Amino acid sequence: MTETLDAVERTALLTAALRAAESSRQDRLYDDPYAARLAGDAGPELLAEIREATFPKNAARTLPSTPDYNAIRTRFFDDFLQQAAQDPDMHQIVLAPAGMDSRAYRLAWPSDIRYFEVDRPAVLAYKEERLRGVPPRVDHHSVAVDLTSPDWENKLVAAGYDPGLPSTWLLEGLLYYIPGDDAHRIIERVAAITKPGSRIAADIVNEAALTLPNMRGLLDVFAGWGCPWLFGSDNPEALFDEHGFTVEAAQPGDPAAAYDRWPDPVPDRAETGVRRVFFVHGSKN
């Protein structure tokens, strides 16, 4: 079924392959028993291209370590979602987009949580086929709709989401693949459908990461696949504040997002001309 996925949708198979590889490590940061079946045959092929670019045979690594980054990102957001779910006032979690994520199947959730996965129809159809026979461990709802469509909010509500109750949102692996106007619009639309006190998390790169010469090896791979990186922000706190969220932004390797796995220096926020990625997390005002 991978032939039904477009270029951006296929990046979810790369994420699944990265999670499968992490799960095979003795020092793994999490265990995803479904990642390999979600990755299929295409995911490892995509991962092989990333590894070739990131870890050249006859040269020093200049690109960020995608396997370590992905492991830290997954664990960081695992912890964020699990902590949010323990809040007695929190009953709704939304992954938008859901991609090949299996948190609904591999993590334990309180019985009062409603868990929504929003993604394009082709992605959710592929995922359903791959996970056939595997029961979710939560009250699970799939919402097959593109986040750029004019009516995804209506479909989410029709699936059981209640805008009048607090919710927790994860925008993982999304913002750098879409133009800046669309990124702002999605955050604005999420704000409009969430109650004050709701939580949000996302990953985002800085602007320099889109243009630095020493990022070209990685950027060229994604562009060659037909899914170039399009958007970054040097001040993600201000980006989300503009739409009514108060957030913090951790970099991989910061104390809150290290897990003894980040192999590179962590640049001070005042330093310019360096690549960055941020794990944004906070709540609606």
Rank of each mutant, 00 (worst) to 15 (best):
G99Q: 03
D87Q: 09
W109Q: 10
Q86H: 14
R103M: 09
H91M: 10
V94C: 02
A85I: 02
V94G: 03
F80H: 05
P110I: 05
Y105P: 04
A104E: 01
P97A: 05
M90Q: 15
A85Q: 06
A85M: 04
R103K: 07
S102V: 09
F80T: 03
M100T: 12
Q83P: 07
P97L: 01
L95Y: 05
A108I: 12
A85G: 13
Y105S: 08
Q83R: 14
Q83V: 12
M90C: 12
F80Q: 09
R103V: 10
H91K: 14
S102G: 04
Y105A: 11
L81V: 01
F80M: 07
P110S: 07
F80I: 01
A85T: 00
Y105W: 15
S111Y: 10
A98C: 14
W109N: 07
A84K: 03
Q86R: 15
V94I: 11
S102C: 13
Q83Y: 02
Y105T: 13
F80V: 06
I93M: 04
A98I: 03
M100R: 08
W109I: 04
Q83W: 04
P88N: 11
S111M: 13
S111A: 15
I93R: 00
P110Q: 03
V94T: 05
P97H: 00
V94F: 02
A84E: 05
A96L: 15
P88S: 08
S102F: 08
P88M: 13
D87I: 10
D89H: 13
P110A: 01
D101R: 09
D101K: 09
D87L: 10
M100W: 02
G99A: 02
Q82K: 14
R106P: 04
D101N: 13
Q92L: 05
D89P: 00
S111N: 12
P97E: 08
Q83C: 11
Q92S: 10
Q82V: 11
L107I: 03
M100G: 07
L95V: 11
D89M: 14
A108G: 13
L107E: 11
I93N: 01
A84I: 01
D89Q: 15
A85F: 00
A96W: 07
Q86D: 12
Q92N: 09
L81E: 01
A104T: 05
L107F: 09
A98E: 03
G99K: 00
Q92M: 02
Q86T: 15
S111W: 13
H91Y: 10
W109H: 05
D89F: 13
S111C: 06
V94A: 04
I93C: 01
G99P: 04
D89C: 10
Q82M: 12
F80L: 11
A84N: 01
Q92T: 04
M90E: 07
Q86L: 14
H91A: 12
